[in-house]
């Protein structure tokens, strides 16, 4: 499925201008804090509305300022993974997974997702009783159960220690490659983006750059030609 995002939004002094086109697979949106990455995700999910432009997912128009189309988040079929996972604190793991499965889902319909994300034995725990990695798996299971057309991830590893992060990245990569959906991954961490692979789009002061492959991006970076980080170099390996 193809995702087209061409939007503009002004927030007091800051202006966002995003031009993105992507298909199934991973695209990392890389940029410093406050460059508008999260705002971009929120606009795609319908949590915030752009001033102008359009967002198209497959053949569905999610937003079009000219045709005055603006689907509510409920109708967009967008899976959004929040930085802190936004698990419902008063619901058990199972209830969290069921939350995106319609009005009165059969409790057993969560089972395949609980199995797949290895949280079946935690099914009656509350989020506060889970570790960071377990919470992330619940959040992933909830999104998988919702069966969205696109997955948006807002710095899902930012709150984790390095050891756990590495493990979870691998785990998430596996899940995402099975998903066969566009996955937009937001990050400010070069290492993370490098390990996740996939294409990269740099973002700076609210503007998106070209979409380039992972190899190309790090090649540029090594040679100090990066648009995003002019003059910035990855330290040579011999150090």
């Amino acid at each position: 499925m193809k995702l087209h995002v061409h939007i503009k939004k002004k927030i007091s002094e800051f202006s966002l201008a995003v031009d993105l086109e992507m298909t199934d697979g991973l695209l990392s949106l890389l940029g410093p804090s406050g460059c508008g990455k999260t705002m971009t995700l929120k606009c795609i999910a319908g949590i915030e509305n752009p001033d102008e432009g359009f967002i198209k997912l497959g053949d569905r128009v999610l937003f079009d300022s000219r045709k005055k189309i603006c689907l509510p988040p409920q109708k967009r079929r967008v899976g959004y993974m929040f930085q802190d996972y936004a698990l419902f604190p008063h619901m058990t793991v199972r209830q969290n997974v069921l939350a995106g499965m319609g009005r009165r889902p059969d409790p057993a319909s969560a089972d395949p997702f609980l199995e797949r994300f290895r949280i079946a034995d935690l099914h009656d725990r509350l989020p506060e009783e889970l570790s960071g990695g377990q919470k992330q798996r619940v959040a992933m299971a909830r999104i998988a159960a919702q069966d969205p057309d696109v997955i948006l991830m807002d710095e899902p590893f930012s709150a984790m220690d390095t050891m756990l992060k590495w493990e979870l990245e691998q785990e998430m990569l596996e899940t995402l490659s099975e998903a066969e959906k566009p996955v937009l991954f937001v990050s400010h961490d070069l290492d993370e983006v490098y390990r996740m692979g996939g294409n990269i789009c740099c973002m700076k002061d609210g503007k998106t750059g070209n979409i380039i492959s992972n190899e190309e991006f790090f090649e540029d970076l090594k040679n100090g030609n990066s648009e995003l980080l002019p003059g910035w170099r990855i330290l040579p390996p011999e150090r």
Binding site: P73, Q74, K75, A99, R142
Partner: peptide
Amino acid sequence: VDVNLVYAARTLGMSETR
């Protein structure tokens, strides 16, 4: 109430009343 919970609920398709 954490506003992200409300946002999450919306993207999960829950109606405003729900």
